[in-house]
C-alpha cells in the first residue's frame, strides 16, 4: 500500500513538473518576452532596446536553465548588465550580491514577484488560494451531499417517476455551464430590473467579507454544474447495484426495501463515485479558475 501511494505521489509530482514546464516555456516564448519588456520598460522601445533589456535580466538564456532557476535546482543568475547594473535572480530588494542565496526558486520558498500586482507571488497565491478554498469548501459542502442524495434516490428505483424527475434535474444541470447558470441566477435572484432581488449578484464584495447574501450565488453557480455529473454517476452506479444478484438475494431473504437500499446497496453504490470521481473533482474544482459573477 505504501508503495502504491508513493508511486501515485511520484506521478503527481511528475505531472506538476511537466505542467509548470509547459506553461513556463509558453510564457517565455519570444513574442511574450517582447511584450513583457515593453510593458515593463517602455512601450516605445526599439527592437534593440528590447534585446538589451531582456538579456540584462537574464531572459535570453536556455529555457531549461531558466526553469531550473525558477524551480530552485539551479543557482540563480547574476548578470552584470550592459548598463552597468548587476542584476540577479536572488538580488531583489537591494541585497548585496555577496550575501545573496545561491538558489532561490519555489523550492526555497521564493515564488517570485508579480510585476502586475506589485506583490510577492507567494502572497498573491496564498490569498487567492484562501479565497478559492473558502469558495470551494462551500461548493463541496453543498455539491457532494446533495448530488449523492439525488443520485441514490434516482437510482434506487430505475424508471420510477422519482427517477425521471431527478434525472431531468441532473441532466439540466450538466447542460448548464457556469456562465449560463450565472446569467440565469442573476436575472432571477439578483437583477434590479426583474426577479426576486434576494441576493447580491456581485461577488467582489465577498473578497473581504463573506455573507450569505453575496456568497450564495457564486456557490450555487459553481456547485450546480458539478452536481449533475456526480448525481448521474451515482445514479448509474446505484442502478447497476440494484440489479445485482446480491440485491436479489437480499430481497429474497425478506429484507425490506428501505434496508436493501440503506444496508446492502448504498455502500456498494457509493464506492465508485466517491473514489474515482470525487478525487478528480476536487482537483477540477481547485484548478478551475473561480468564476466571478460580474
Amino acid at each position: 500500500m505504501g508503495l502504491f501511494v508513493l508511486r501515485r505521489f511520484g506521478v503527481m509530482i511528475l505531472t506538476a513538473l511537466c505542467l509548470t514546464f509547459v506553461v513556463f516555456v509558453l510564457t517565455n516564448l519570444e513574442p511574450n518576452l517582447e511584450k513583457l519588456a515593453k510593458t515593463q520598460g517602455n512601450a516605445r522601445m526599439s527592437d534593440e532596446q528590447v534585446e538589451t533589456w531582456l538579456s540584462n535580466r537574464g531572459y535570453h538564456r536556455p529555457v531549461a536553465v531558466k526553469y531550473g532557476e525558477w524551480l530552485g535546482v539551479l543557482p540563480g543568475y547574476v548578470i552584470e548588465g550592459t548598463d552597468g547594473e548587476t542584476r540577479g535572480r536572488c538580488l531583489r530588494g537591494g541585497v548585496d550580491p555577496a550575501d545573496a542565496a545561491r538558489f532561490c526558486g519555489i523550492l526555497q520558498g521564493d515564488w517570485g514577484f508579480s510585476t502586475v500586482f506589485k506583490e510577492d507571488v507567494w502572497k498573491i497565491v496564498l490569498t487567492r488560494l484562501g479565497q478559492t478554498a473558502k469558495l470551494m469548501g462551500w461548493v463541496m459542502a453543498v455539491m457532494v451531499p446533495s448530488s449523492l442524495i439525488i443520485g441514490v434516490l434516482a437510482g434506487m428505483r430505475e424508471g420510477s417517476k422519482l427517477d425521471r424527475s431527478l434525472s431531468t434535474v441532473s441532466i439540466v444541470t450538466t447542460a448548464t455551464p457556469e456562465y449560463v447558470s450565472g446569467v440565469i441566477f442573476i436575472t432571477v435572484f439578483a437583477s434590479s430590473a426583474v426577479g426576486l432581488k434576494w441576493f447580491n449578484g456581485s461577488a467582489t464584495s465577498a473578497m473581504e467579507d463573506i455573507t450569505f447574501l453575496n456568497f450564495t450565488l457564486p456557490v450555487m453557480t459553481v456547485a450546480l454544474y458539478g452536481m449533475g455529473y456526480i448525481a448521474r454517476m451515482t445514479r448509474a452506479s446505484m442502478t447497476e447495484v440494484m440489479t445485482a444478484q446480491y440485491i436479489r438475494t437480499a430481497r429474497l431473504k425478506g429484507v425490506s426495501f428501505r434496508n436493501i437500499v440503506l444496508k446492502h446497496a448504498l455502500r456498494n453504490a457509493l464506492i465508485a463515485p466517491l473514489t474515482t470521481q470525487l478525487i478528480s473533482d476536487i482537483g477540477y474544482v481547485f484548478l478551475n479558475p473561480r468564476i466571478r459573477i460580474s
Partner: peptide, 14 residues
C-alpha cells in the same frame, strides 16, 4: 457582452 449590464438589462444575455 450582456453580462456587463446584467443587473439592469437582463434581456440581451438571457
Amino acid at each position: 457582452e450582456g453580462r456587463k449590464l446584467l443587473s439592469i438589462y437582463p434581456h440581451p444575455a438571457l
